[in-house]
Amino acid sequence: MKLQVLKEKYRAKVQELVLGATKEEGGTRSCTVTVGGDSCLPFHHFEGEVPNRPVVAMEVTDIKPNWNPKLLKNFEDVFEKPGEWARKNVENFGADLIYLKFDGADPEGEDRSVEDCVETLQEVLQAVGVPLIVSGCGNEEKDNKLMEAIAEAASGENLLIGNAEQDNYKTITAACMVHKHSIIAKSPLDINICKQLNILISEMNLPLNKIVIDPSIGGLGYGIEYAYSIMERSRLGALQGDKMLSMPIICTVGYEAWRTKEANVSEDEFPEWGTQEERGVLWEAVTASAMLQAGAHILVMRHPKAVELTKRNIDQLMQPFSYE
């Protein structure tokens, strides 16, 4: 007897969003990257379309990052030169996008000027052809000034700019509107705030297909299941026609994985846990794998080896299949 496969029918899909702009489109990127467009649960190829593969954005910071030495050694020749670092991520490690984070702008830290940061942005834009994601230092006041300047300096490049949050979204949204960039809407592991923030941003007339959700995640073993539930709920909402939950999702996998104890403690302390770097790589790759299953579209990652494992995982998950 033939197996009867019960399929869910959904009435809507995830927004499709394009990052970057080529010369013809008013930017200088050599390619654009499209994410989203799914009309089914993650990788349910038998129930709907998964038109675009999830992508990996590799992190670059404007100053030498405060990362674990085992991670940092992969970039020791470039971490003082963001342009070269970005190029290495793309050419050697296969990054689909560059995630440029301005930790150096923090007034509590190096307090780099807006002008210096814009110069760093130009350096990275010139060094690579892939689209860019840009994120601030976390200080609201400084980030608002910085992102206004960045949006203007890269006008037409269709950057993905973060982070807009419930209490601080207007300046960044306006900057994205004027200079035609997309925005990251970040909520603190809360589906209700996630939806409300998308509404607030869209009420300023930024189109829905220019918004990416950052639900805030946890690393493996550090609350990842909450992120999973929220992403699943968001995807189900999108598929059932809730437009305010229909945006693609970005997950800061590298940041979360590399702040776990398991990725950082030395072999001397826990000899039975195996080598430290391998642990870190696996923690990052497994976190990424769970987020892919939960419906992530853009993974922000750090370790080249973890990126390699994740890209292989994506290849496998993108193999179409049906039960016919």
């Binding site: 409300q196 809730d242 939950l245």
Partner: peptide, 15 residues
């Protein structure tokens, strides 16, 4: 049946 948000009445009208 729908995910709560502060603007839930407005969203109901607009969909």
């Amino acid at each position: 049946q729908s995910v709560y948000c502060d603007s839930f009445v407005k969203m109901f009208k607009q969909r």
